[in-house]
C-alpha cells in the first residue's frame, strides 16, 4: 500500500506539477511530456493503482482463506429481510 501511495504521489505531484517544465522538453507524440502526465497520464496511473490494490488484496484474502467466510458472501443486509 505504501508503494502504491508513493506512485500516486510521484505521478501526480512530481511528474505532473513539480517537474512539469523539464519534462515538457520531451514529447510524446504531439504532447509535451509533462503536460501529458498532468492532463492524461496521471489519471491512467490512478486507475491502474486502484486495480492493482483491489487485485492484490483479493490475493491476500484468498491466501488466508477469508474469502470463503460466509459473511463476506452475504449479498443482502439482514435488516432488509427482517421487514
Amino acid at each position: 500500500m505504501v508503494v502504491l501511495l508513493s506512485f500516486w504521489f510521484v505521478v501526480s505531484y512530481l511528474l505532473g506539477i513539480v517537474f512539469v517544465e523539464p519534462l515538457n522538453q520531451f514529447h510524446l507524440g504531439g504532447f509535451p511530456l509533462g503536460f501529458w502526465f498532468a492532463q492524461q497520464g496521471s489519471i491512467y496511473v490512478f486507475i491502474l493503482l486502484t486495480f492493482v490494490y483491489a487485485f492484490a488484496m483479493d490475493r491476500i484474502d484468498r491466501r488466508h482463506g477469508v474469502d470463503k467466510s460466509p459473511a463476506l458472501d452475504s449479498p443482502k443486509d439482514s435488516s432488509e429481510t427482517a421487514e
Binding site: M1, L4, W8, S12, S42, F46, L49, T50, Y53
Partner: peptide, 12 residues
C-alpha cells in the same frame, strides 16, 4: 488530477 486522485485515497 484533483478530482480523480482522491479516488486512490478512497480506495486504499
Amino acid at each position: 488530477m484533483g478530482w480523480t486522485g482522491g479516488y486512490v485515497l478512497l480506495a486504499l
